[in-house]
């Protein structure tokens, strides 16, 4: 009985300490952003690594998700003779939900895990300590540019995912199933509001997700236990925690941005 209580207590204390460390980490990370004004050149290579190199997986996944949406939407809407609304269905699903959420989940798997492994290995091989001994702050030199690059890249990836997804929907609905092309686009144009759907959906959501995803990925790398096993565990934790955080936050954001008024 007491053993169980003890474990619960220890677990709670560890969790609180970890949350505290995570909070302080974000604070230092944000403070270190100022440094980038003097060294803007550090950011573009990271955008290339985190953003450009994630493009294939984002584009391919986006196209498939769009095709599935087109197919499922057609099969169900055609029964009510509403196949012309397909464009609105595909676009709204992607812009409001699937674009930012799927892009964030894919980003966590492809770029977030790579970030954690990179930082974790730098810590394990004493590169971070070496940098500190050379009087170079790793928060400024290593973590800040990666955070900034990730926060720039991920919303763009979400936008690309959404756009490619709409093309995928168009491909199935119009090219394969023969829905009217004009109806597809005009219904979409009529249904999607820029402020209501695009800004509240893909823009705000993906910005929030990008901050969370990059924060978790960098923190897990920096907090890694410096062993091979520790880096492996940290990488897994990045993907799991980011996915959970993104899905939970998505509900909260949806409730605030699109909730019943």
């Amino acid at each position: 009985m007491t053993g169980w209580l003890q474990r619960l207590g220890r677990y709670t204390l560890e969790l609180l300490a970890r949350l505290g460390r995570e909070g302080l980490f974000l604070l230092r990370l944000l403070q270190a952003q100022v440094f980038l004004f003097s060294r803007p050149g550090l950011v573009p290579p990271q955008i290339h690594f985190l953003g450009v190199q994630s493009l294939p997986i984002i584009a391919v996944s986006g196209f498939f998700v769009g095709m599935v949406l087109g197919l499922q939407g057609y099969v169900n809407l055609v029964r009510f003779g509403a196949a012309s609304s397909l464009g609105a269905l595909v676009a709204l699903s992607l812009v409001r939900e699937l674009g930012p959420v799927m892009a964030a989940l894919l980003y966590a798997g492809r770029a977030g895990s790579a970030l954690t492994a990179e930082i974790g290995l730098m810590k394990t091989t004493e590169q971070l300590a070496g940098m500190e001994m050379m009087a170079v702050d790793p928060f400024k030199r290593v973590l800040a540019p990666r955070f900034m690059a990730g926060c720039i890249a991920m919303p763009l990836l979400a936008g690309i995912f959404t756009a490619v997804g709409i093309l995928g929907g168009y491909f199935v609905a119009v090219e394969q199933l023969g829905t009217d092309s004009g109806a597809f686009w005009s219904q979409m144009q009529a249904a999607v509001e820029f402020r209501e759907d695009v800004v509240n959906g893909v823009v705000i959501k993906s910005i929030v997700f990008s901050i969370v995803a990059n924060w978790i990925a960098l923190f897990e790398g920096y907090d890694t236990e410096p062993t091979a096993e520790g880096v492996g565990r940290a990488t897994t934790r990045t993907v799991v925690n980011t996915s959970l955080a993104v899905l939970a936050l998505d509900f909260v954001l949806t409730a605030f941005l699109f909730g019943a008024k």
Partner: peptide, 19 residues
């Protein structure tokens, strides 16, 4: 401490070179 470290060198066991 960063100012002082500029005058200290350290050779890590793992060499700690940037890969």
């Amino acid at each position: 401490i960063y100012r002082l470290r500029k005058r200290m060198g350290m050779l890590f066991q793992s060499s700690a070179l940037f890969t």
